[in-house]
Computed example of a mutant assay.
Amino acid sequence: MTESEFIAKMIPYAVADMQRSRIAASLTIAQAALESGWGSSSLTVKANNLFGIKGEGPAGSLPFRTTEYRNGQAVQVTAKFRAYHNWGESVTNHSDLITGGVSWNPKLYTKAINVDGKTAAREIAAAGYATDPGYASKLIQIMDAYHLVQYDQVKEDEEMSAEDKQKLADLEKELQTLRTLLAELTVSRDTLKTGVQEQGQTIKGVAERLAVIEGRAVMNVPAWAEPAVRAAEAAGLLDTPSGGSYDFYRMLTVLNRAGLLVTGKGV
């Protein structure tokens, strides 16, 4: 497997996992490349272990010789490493380790979460993820050489499938109807208040219907949807911001762009 082939195979896993864990895709790819020798290590070939994580994995464990640094000196030791059924399990386990830390310090790698890849590399190294004193610089060299930071910013349009785009088009039509209803409200204070309340219920109804549309699995609030979620909470239209579907957060984003997530305060 060439380095380009390795990166191409890693991108879908790293980017998809980034949406869940907020671990920069560039960090995931660079660590996998460094730890696995670009997918050629015996640990990766035999156990699908991309990151050299020790312990018991979904497919058991395998003993391997490894290099560790003690007092700045490289030494060879034998240890048990986790085995996985596929690369996806390895990537998920890697991110879970970063987000969940270790038993004696669950927040050990917190500073490596929700930051750019290079910052994450420095923070994870500073937290003691690896014993190699040059670990961070090696990761950053890989990121620079293969322009991996581009995968940390997933463009919304590139994420959308044809089905997603159709759903958004249907939403736009429904929003146009809502805009028309809002425009037809009278300037009377009492009437306007009533209209805003009615429209709020209508929007909330749309949100409830869209929340059950078949689509992506329940997920945490993605960064691109945070402004819309905050607006919906302020408008009293959203009780639980996290745990929505992919389509639900896209719907909120469209509503927010249309200026319909309003509180009605001061009206």
Score class of each variant (00 low, 15 high):
residue 193 K to A: 12
residue 234 A to T: 11
residue 151 Y to Q: 05
residue 179 R to P: 07
residue 93 N to G: 13
residue 107 K to L: 06
residue 121 A to W: 06
residue 261 L to G: 08
residue 228 A to D: 13
residue 46 K to M: 11
residue 182 L to F: 07
residue 199 Q to E: 01
residue 266 G to Y: 02
residue 112 A to Q: 03
residue 136 A to H: 00
residue 96 D to T: 07
residue 203 I to A: 05
residue 214 E to F: 06
residue 89 E to D: 14
residue 76 Q to N: 10
residue 59 A to M: 09
residue 163 E to M: 10
residue 172 E to H: 12
residue 188 S to H: 05
residue 183 A to H: 06
residue 69 Y to P: 09
residue 65 R to E: 12
residue 68 E to M: 00
residue 212 V to W: 00
residue 65 R to I: 02
residue 10 M to I: 00
residue 232 A to Y: 09
residue 26 S to Q: 02
residue 19 Q to Y: 01
residue 20 R to I: 07
residue 207 A to D: 05
residue 226 E to L: 03
residue 255 L to W: 15
residue 260 L to I: 11
residue 11 I to P: 04
residue 260 L to P: 03
residue 104 W to Y: 14
residue 49 N to Y: 02
residue 261 L to K: 04
residue 164 D to P: 12
residue 138 K to Q: 09
residue 40 S to E: 03
residue 30 A to Y: 00
residue 33 A to Q: 08
residue 220 N to R: 14
residue 258 A to M: 14
residue 75 V to D: 05
residue 184 E to M: 09
residue 62 L to Y: 07
residue 121 A to F: 04
residue 85 H to Q: 14
residue 207 A to G: 03
residue 57 G to L: 06
residue 114 N to Q: 08
residue 241 P to K: 09
residue 177 T to L: 07
residue 154 V to H: 14
residue 215 G to P: 02
residue 200 G to C: 11
residue 229 V to Q: 12
residue 248 F to K: 15
residue 37 G to V: 01
residue 138 K to V: 05
residue 246 Y to M: 10
residue 80 K to L: 08
residue 208 E to S: 13
residue 12 P to E: 06
residue 195 G to C: 09
residue 164 D to Q: 10
residue 92 T to N: 15
residue 229 V to F: 08
residue 251 M to A: 15
residue 238 L to V: 00
residue 244 G to F: 01
residue 240 T to K: 15
residue 259 G to N: 10
residue 112 A to K: 01
residue 68 E to R: 06
residue 81 F to D: 05
residue 264 G to F: 01
residue 58 P to R: 13
residue 242 S to P: 00
residue 221 V to E: 11
residue 30 A to T: 02
residue 129 Y to M: 07
residue 8 A to L: 03
residue 53 I to K: 10
residue 3 E to Q: 15
residue 70 R to P: 00
residue 189 R to A: 15
residue 132 D to N: 12
residue 228 A to M: 01
residue 225 A to R: 10
residue 139 L to C: 04
residue 75 V to Q: 10
